[in-house]
């Protein structure tokens, strides 16, 4: 029994090591005096300073944030309403549309990227932030719909009738009852959309134009010339931001749960 527990702990340790070793390496090398990510030669904050004077990188970061935020907001809005509509109404071709939703999910990104590019060329649109945002919205919507629909399916839909019965009109029923009731699905859909948009390379590669480089694209481009440790510094900062948000949100969760179970 005892040996089994040790084996179990060892296994868990190895799994976490496998998951986090690359990230730790990255953070460590962001403080490295040598510009090569091979040997750790000494501690420095030089790269963090250089980062803030690297305008290309900062510009790419700005673009990434704009594209992710805008595309997440729009795709969450459209996806949520679409999921509710698909759940509520029956119409000809509903089944077909439901199946069609999975196509963008399973289709290789490279195919989606090329198709979007050919549409933009056909429409003679100039590639830039606009086309980038539209592309990100396009591939995010199915993920939002699927995630919202999962929650909708497990929701007691009689609450809608109950709301009407208690005097709520259609709009109030949607905003005061349905949306709050399916909020977990909306949040997870939005999170999914945001993370997908944040690190997308392939589709962005086809649909971005001059001056609309995103961070993943920029880093990808830098591989050819060699990655400098200021990229390490930037990603370390991003990890820091994400970790902070995660910790705060789980603290809020824990406090809420404690409050509810205290009674």
């Amino acid at each position: 029994m005892q040996r089994h527990r040790h084996l179990k702990n060892l296994f868990i340790f190895l799994v976490f090591l496998f998951l986090y070793l690359p990230i730790i390496t990255l953070i460590v090398f962001s403080f490295n005096t040598s510009p090569l990510n091979i040997l750790f030669e000494g501690f420095t904050l030089e790269w963090y300073g250089k980062l803030f004077s690297n305008t290309t990188l900062l510009e790419a970061l700005k673009n990434t944030i704009i594209v992710s935020v805008v595309s997440t907001v729009i795709s969450t809005f459209i996806g949520t309403l679409a999921a509710i509509g698909l759940q509520k109404y029956n119409f000809v071709g509903k089944n077909f549309i439901n199946k069609l939703l999975y196509v963008p999910v399973v289709i290789p990104e490279i195919v989606l990227g090329i198709s979007l590019l050919s549409v933009y060329t056909l429409l003679k649109l100039n590639l830039g932030l606009g086309t980038l945002i539209v592309s990100h919205i396009a591939f995010s919507i199915p993920f939002v719909i699927i995630s919202v629909r999962t929650v909708l399916n497990s929701t007691n839909l009689q609450i809608e009738e109950a709301a009407h019965d208690l005097g709520a009109n259609d709009f109030k029923t949607l905003t005061n009852v349905i949306i709050p009731e399916i909020m977990p699905g909306i949040v997870s859909g939005a999170t999914l959309a945001f993370t997908l948009s944040l690190d997308d390379v392939i589709i962005s590669y086809f649909t971005a134009g001059p001056g609309s480089n995103t961070l993943p694209l920029q880093i990808y481009a830098m591989i050819k010339t060699g990655i400098t440790p200021d990229v390490n510094a930037l990603t370390t900062l991003m990890i820091l931001v994400i970790m902070t948000v995660l910790i705060i949100s789980s603290l809020i969760q824990v406090r809420k749960m404690k409050k509810e179970y205290a009674r």
């Binding site: 007691n156 009689q158 609450i159 009738e161 109950a162 709301a163 009407h164 019965d165 208690l166 005097g167 709520a168 009109n169 009852v177 709050p180 009731e181 909020m183």
Partner: peptide
Amino acid sequence: VIPRKREVNTIFQNFALFSHM
């Protein structure tokens, strides 16, 4: 007359309470 304009209320079989409230 639509449901919300009628002076009646319904108690549903599965209660249909709003779980977020």
